[in-house]
C-alpha cells in the first residue's frame, strides 16, 4: 500500500512535442483517482509514465517512499489492466495469473493460494484451465483484473479497461471494479475518456487537457464548479449550455435578460447553464425565449433541443412535461456558471 506523488512531471518527445507538461498530483494511499479527458490529452501517457512504460523526461514520480523514475515497470510494485486485456493467448487463465509471480520466484504453493483466492473473488474459478480465446469479453476482463490482484501491488493502474465491452457489461463491471477497489483498499489510477465512468468511479477526478491538469477535485465538486468552459463542456451529460453574455458593472446581460450578479468587471462572458437547471417559466416569470428544434424522449427524462438567438440550448425535463414550439425557460440565477469569453476561466 502506498501513495503516488507526481512532481512537475512532463513528457517531451523528440522534436519538442510535449505530450504531458508540469503535472503535480498527490494520490493518497487507498485513493481511487480517475484521469479523464478527450483523446490526445495525455492521460494515457501520464499513466504509462507511472507504470514505467514511457520514460519520464521531466519531474519526479514517487510510489510509496521510492522515486521510481529509473525503475523497470516490474520493480515499481504496480499492476496494470489494459484496454485490450493483453492476456497471453497461449497460456491458460491460471498460467496468465501466475506468470508474474513465477518471474518473481514466489514459492509454488503461495502462487496457487493467491491465484485461487483471486479466482474466488472474481468468480473465474471454473475457467482456470481455459485459454483466453475460449472466454467472453467480460470473462477476459476479469482475468485481466485477476492478474493485477494476485500481485498484491502498491497500486493498480487501469488504462481504459472497460472500453472494449458492450454498454451493459460496462456498467456492471464498473460497479465491480469500484467495490473490489474498496474491498482491497489498493491505491488506483484509472484512465478513461468516458466522463460518466469517471464520475461514478472516482474519489477524485483529474481533468486533463493538452497534457496539463485543468482541474482536480471530487466528482461532484468538479460537476458543480467547473473551473473552465472546457471542464464545463466535458463533465456532465448532456453537456452544459454555454450562452454568450456581457458583464457590465455587476449586471449580467444574457438572452434578453439583465440581472445583478456578484462578479465585478466589464467583459464578454460565457454563461453556463446545466440542462437539468432549466425549467419552463411560470407565467410572468422572466425567462429565455427559445424555439424548439426537436425532442429526445429518454424514458426517465426528455431532452428538449432548442435555439436561443441562434445558439443551441438543451434542457432536461421530466418525462411528462409538455414541450411547445415556443417556450420561455427559466433558471435559478444563483447556480449560474460564469466564464470569461476570452480565457474560458471561471469568474464566479
Amino acid at each position: 500500500m502506498a501513495g503516488i506523488t507526481l512532481e512537475n512531471v512532463g513528457k517531451t518527445y523528440a522534436g519538442d512535442v510535449a505530450a504531458v507538461a508540469d503535472v503535480n498530483l498527490e494520490i493518497n494511499d487507498g485513493e481511487f483517482v480517475v484521469l479523464v479527458g478527450p483523446s490526445g490529452c495525455g492521460k494515457s501517457t501520464l499513466l504509462r509514465m507511472v507504470a514505467g512504460l514511457e520514460t519520464i523526461t521531466e519531474g519526479r514520480v514517487t510510489i510509496g517512499a521510492r522515486v521510481v523514475n529509473n525503475l523497470e515497470p516490474a520493480d515499481r510494485d504496480i499492476a496494470m489492466v489494459f484496454q485490450n486485456y493483453a492476456l497471453y493467448p497461449h497460456m491458460t487463465v491460471r498460467q496468465n495469473l501466475s506468470y508474474g509471480l513465477k518471474n518473481r520466484r514466489m514459492p509454488r504453493d503461495e502462487i496457487t493460494r493467491r491465484v485461487d483466492e483471486a479466482a474466488g473473488i472474481l468468480e473465474i474459478g471454473e475457467y482456470l484451465d481455459r485459454k483466453p480465446r475460449a472466454l467472453s469479453g467480460g470473462q477476459r476482463q476479469r482475468v485481466a483484473m485477476g492478474r493485477a490482484i494476485v500481485r498484491e501491488p502498491a497500486a493498480f493502474l487501469f488504462d481504459e479497461p472497460l472500453s472494449n465491452l458492450d454498454a451493459k457489461l460496462r456498467v456492471s463491471m464498473r460497479g465491480e471494479i469500484r467495490s473490489l477497489q474498496k474491498r482491497l483498499g489498493t491505491t488506483s489510477v484509472y484512465v478513461t475518456h468516458d466522463q460518466l465512468e469517471a464520475m461514478t468511479l472516482a474519489d477524485r477526478l483529474v481533468v486533463l487537457r493538452g497534457g496539463r491538469i485543468e482541474q482536480i477535485g471530487a466528482p461532484i465538486e468538479v460537476y458543480r464548479r467547473p473551473v473552465s468552459t472546457f471542464v464545463a463542456g466535458f463533465i456532465g451529460s448532456p453537456a452544459m449550455n454555454l450562452l454568450p453574455g456581457t458583464l457590465q458593472g455587476g449586471q449580467l446581460h444574457v438572452g434578453g435578460q439583465s440581472f445583478a450578479v456578484e462578479v465585478a468587471g466589464n467583459e464578454k462572458v460565457e454563461v453556463g447553464i446545466r440542462p437539468e437547471d432549466l425549467r419552463p417559466a411560470k407565467s410572468g416569470e422572466p425567462g429565455l425565449a427559445v424555439s424548439l428544434a426537436y425532442v429526445e424522449a429518454l424514458g426517465a427524462q426528455q431532452l428538449g433541443h432548442f435555439r436561443v438567438d441562434g445558439h443551441p440550448l438543451v434542457a432536461a425535463f421530466p418525462p411528462d412535461q409538455l414541450v411547445h414550439d415556443r417556450m420561455s425557460l427559466a433558471f435559478d440565477r444563483t447556480i449560474l456558471h460564469l466564464f470569461s469569453a476570452e480565457t474560458g476561466k471561471r469568474l464566479n
Partner: peptide, 20 residues
Amino acid sequence: ELMEAARIDGAGPLKFFKDI
C-alpha cells in the same frame, strides 16, 4: 500491450522472447 504486460510481470527481453 503483450510486451508491456510481460514487462510489468517482470519478464526481461530474453524471457519475453522465450515465454511469449
